[in-house]
């Protein structure tokens, strides 16, 4: 039997891939040494790294990925797809964080993008294959859901506590670094705004729309978008307030006016959001 995969399923799969890519590599995208590695490395090293990257992706896809045990060509196509997505995602993230601009030479940009994209691509592959909740046994899930509903009613305090743990887990290794202030000071205000919108969009999708692992009880049913919106806002508020707390704790606000404080909070709020959405789901399953 051959049937075409519904568009929605593919979108969800890509969403999980992108979440995985960001979750595993955002701390790297926020690292100066990697911004520099792109132009310090010579072209031959970059070619080698790129080949190794594609090779690793193929191996992962061959043995663990969603199309495992399939033909060589399919593995290759899958790896190319993930690498391509990773390149697009890396360019976008480097652009909103002010790391690539039109005054740079193409060789500098390509170096930066390649160095970061390999990790992002592996993250995407892991996200696509590992971070989904299996839809196979829906009945079982429904049973489980009823059980959990009985045993533990949706408890806001519990949700917030776990989200806070996820935030600290993912964002605290970025918080004390200089990159947060560098990005916050060097990016234009509209880019900071895009970072905020992107955080809300990704966090909301992870919690309610892309069947991320551990979201069985949360997935928004038609007509429940209000609930999803409220949940997303609470999640982003948690991410922002814990970012602000961490930055204050590490003395990053000293001598700054409100604009700088906010920009830094939003910049750190991006990894914090991934922690409060994806991270939180991963640590409770």
């Amino acid at each position: 039997m051959t049937s075409k995969k519904p568009i929605q399923d593919s979108l969800k799969e890509y969403g999980r891939g992108i979440t995985g890519g960001l979750l595993f590599s955002l701390p790297m995208l926020y690292t100066m040494e990697l911004w520099w590695a792109g132009f310090i490395a010579n072209t031959m090293q970059l070619v080698l790294y790129f080949i190794i990257g594609i090779g690793l992706l193929m191996l992962y896809n061959r043995y663990v990925g969603i199309r495992r045990d399939n033909a060589f060509v399919e593995c290759l196509l899958e790896s190319f797809e993930e690498m391509g997505l990773a390149i697009i995602l890396t360019i976008f993230i480097l652009w909103i964080t002010g790391r690539i601009s039109n005054v740079m030479s193409l060789s500098e940009i390509s170096g930066k993008v390649i160095v970061e994209a390999i990790t992002v691509a592996i993250g995407i592959s892991v996200g696509k294959s590992q971070l989904g909740s299996e839809e196979k046994d829906k009945e079982k899930e429904e049973e489980k859901q009823k059980e959990t509903e009985k045993s533990q009613r949706p408890d806001l305090i519990r949700e917030i506590s776990i989200a806070l743990c996820g935030t600290i887990l993912i964002a605290s290794n970025v918080a004390p670094t200089e990159e947060v202030i560098v990005i916050a000071m060097e990016s234009e205000v509209y880019k900071i705004f895009i970072i905020a919108l992107l955080s809300i969009g990704i966090g909301g999708s992870v919690l309610y729309y892309i069947n991320f692992t551990g979201t069985e009880q949360m997935i928004a049913k038609p007509g429940q978008h209000g609930k999803a919106l409220a949940g997303t806002l609470i999640m982003y508020a948690i991410a922002l307030s814990s970012s602000a707390f961490m930055l204050w704790f590490f003395g990053r606000f000293a001598g700054l006016e409100l604009g700088g404080v906010l920009a830094q909070t939003v910049v750190l709020g991006f990894p914090a959001t991934l922690g409060a959405s994806a991270g939180r789901l991963l640590i409770q399953t």
Partner: peptide, 26 residues
């Protein structure tokens, strides 16, 4: 059992071009 749909094909083709271009440029 599932064939790629148009969205997956589009993304695969764009990605393929991008990867080949990047590699070619290097």
């Amino acid at each position: 059992q599932e064939k790629k749909n148009w969205l997956e094909w589009t993304i695969t083709i764009i990605s393929g071009i991008l990867v080949v271009f990047t590699f070619g440029f290097l």
